[in-house]
Design a binder for these strands. Structure first.
Lengths: 220, 220
DNA sequence: GTCTATAAAGTGATAGAC
DNA sequence: GTCTATCACTTTATAGAC
């Protein structure tokens, strides 16, 4: 079921690739099975044959991109923490473990920057928390591991505070990916056109400062 | 066309209120005219009579919530800047002018926190930058005014850097509104259930630190 | 595994009576 | 300004031939 050669992709792969591009561009609900099978140049019935339903196809597309990224995030955090030398992992490294896998996913061309940003935005905006079963648990693990690392790095942080600050950081990344081009339009080009690597560097800097500038983080 | 009394809302108002709740809950494209007119308890034909089309209804709903918030943002920034005493408006105040109108919009019950968050998320995720004509110009004005204020407060910031940092801050707010409840689910309740006012306070703190910790913000 | 043909339901929009 | 009835279309999904 996996990749075969570059030149003769499986029918189900043709469907997946066409689907992810169309979903990113126009949204999960707006895109019809006919749009997908048309772009993939396969028969209308192929989707239901290979995936069971449109909903399951959506889940498959989501899983295909989100799980590898989250796994890589956890792997990187492990790797950084296992490094000898420093006994406390600095905030910047934690953020890097969190953000770099997304950057690599983009740069490696799994999906173009433009598409992947839109895809993430769609996923978050349209699907909200009704994420497929197969991607949900990893998010729980990540929340625990990353907020834990953060609390070691910034001892003043409560668990609650650490979780929310991770969430804030996720918001910065997600919004930048999804709507970076919006800023450029709104500002009439005055926001420049910084390369994605530079933007990620800026995000890490912004978020690290935000996290380290942690005051009281308990309500009441 | 405006509000009449509390007890006998206009047909078009019934439609608007039903529509915004449904759009927030389920997305612009997923909700049908029949869903809306059913919830509003008006006739199917009423939408086309009063608004012309479903698209125009969507625009009306968006405009109704977004424009007042943006106007209030600019008004607040004017007010703060006109205050004697300090000659440079601190970053925290700039962020407050940016965020407080959203908080007020929620607290005043124009739309509930839950709904408004989802609504913003939908708007951003599904509509992207194809915002209605009537709300677009205000965003341009805001980008200019707020990034200008920021550069006065943090002279090291380039125009580009100021715009991107405003954008980052917007991302934090937008993502928190839209997916605050997601964090609570992911973390298994360990993120607590902080009141919205406290969360906004935290966001301002996070973003102020992120903006003030501005290093080099020019690429190349 | 892939195709055609079609079922069954839902969509936005509108004409025309009241 | 509100209603019913209906048009023209698209949607997902599936049965059955090959």
């Amino acid at each position: 079921m996996a990749g075969k050669t570059e030149d003769s992709p499986t029918t189900s792969e043709r469907v997946l690739r066409a689907a992810e591009a169309l979903f990113a561009e126009r949204g999960f609900d707006t895109v019809s099975l006919r749009d997908i099978t048309g772009a993939a140049e396969v028969n209308v019935a192929a989707v239901n044959y290979h995936f069971g339903s449109k909903d399951k196809l959506v889940d498959a597309v989501v899983e295909r991109h989100v799980n590898p990224i989250n796994q890589e995030r956890l792997r990187l955090l492990d790797e950084y923490e296992a490094q000898p030398g420093e006994d406390v992992l600095p905030v910047r490294s934690i953020l890097e473990a969190f953000l770099a896998p997304v950057l690599r996913h983009i740069v490696s061309g799994e999906m173009s920057e433009h598409l992947f940003g839109k895809f993430m935005g769609r996923l978050i905006g349209e699907r909200g928390y009704s994420l497929p079963q197969k991607v949900r648990p990893l998010f729980g693990v990540m929340a625990r591991r990353f907020s834990g690392a953060l609390r070691k790095a910034v001892p003043e942080l409560s668990e609650e505070g650490a979780l929310w600050r991770m969430h804030f950081s996720f918001g910065v990344m997600s919004n930048t990916l999804t709507h970076g081009d919006t800023l450029q339009q709104i500002s009439g080009g005055r926001a420049g056109d910084p390369p994605i690597e530079f933007l990620f560097e800026q995000i890490i800097e912004f978020c690290a400062a935000g996290i380290e500038g942690a005051g009281g983080v308990e309500h009441e």
